[in-house]
Design a protein around this nucleic acid. Structure first.
Lengths: 124, 124
DNA sequence: ATCATTGTATTAAGTTAATAATACATTGTA
DNA sequence: TACAATGTATTATTAACTTAATACAATGAT
């Protein structure tokens, strides 16, 4: 997954969303070490300050923990991780249904559109 | 539908999205007159300049047309309107599936979650 | 012990968004 | 004709975001 950032939203907010997703989907496992601020910033081609801001936000919610000079790790609280995953999915679903309804699609049409569809399946 | 604007995205971009949705869903019918810049700005509690910027964007795409001193109207090109609706829905679906896949849900799980769901249906 | 790496903090600069306060030309209408 | 309402333009100010360039304390490894 490449670090593609849109310009119509604050970068740090996009970093937060991306990192959250990577944590709850197991890219960074519970208790696992995260790359350093500088390293991730370089990978994502953003300023270290911006990545730091994103990390601070994740820290605030308890999803990651700082070990001062030895980097950061993902929480080992798998219940919290699962809950976060559930919340993120809930947000996606709710927003999606709302927007599709605003566009004039009802539930059965939406499900039909999704069922017909090819291509978005998980790769590798 | 209230004018609820999030702070984590440029307001004018949210106005564009909302107005597009209202046009393609028939809130503002083809050839119909739109409220004035000042009026809509007041309704949405934003600065007239911000609403003007949103209108300018919609104008650029051809969805609305300016009649100088007598306001603006929605295009009568229903093909364009339908195409826009299709594009907006396509974006929603594509983004939704991508994000849900990133969260670790496959297609069948997604459809199941949507099918179980109550509440997002169109009201009135 | 030394040193590279870690998180963290600070200061400065530049950009964009949003608001505010006006102003102007044009046109439909009273 | 006079006037209100239209889109449009301008200038200024404020705030948020991002980048840049450093700097410092703490720690793990050599």
């Amino acid at each position: 997954m490449a670090w593609i950032l849109q310009s119509d939203r604050p970068i740090y907010a996009q970093l937060v969303e991306r990192l959250k997703t990577e944590i709850v989907s197991g890219v960074y496992p519970p208790g696992g070490r995260l790359p350093s601020v500088r390293e991730l910033a370089a990978t994502a081609s953003v300023n270290p300050n911006t990545m730091q801001k994103a990390f601070a936000e994740l820290e605030r919610t308890g999803l990651i923990i700082t070990m001062r000079t030895s980097g950061r790790i993902v929480t080992e609280d798998t219940a919290m991780i699962n809950e976060t995953r559930r919340e993120l999915a809930e947000e996606q679903i709710s927003q999606f249904l709302t927007q599709m309804n605003n566009l004039g699609f009802d539930r059965s049409e939406i499900i039909e559109l999704l069922s017909e569809r090819k291509g978005e399946d998980v790769h590798e």
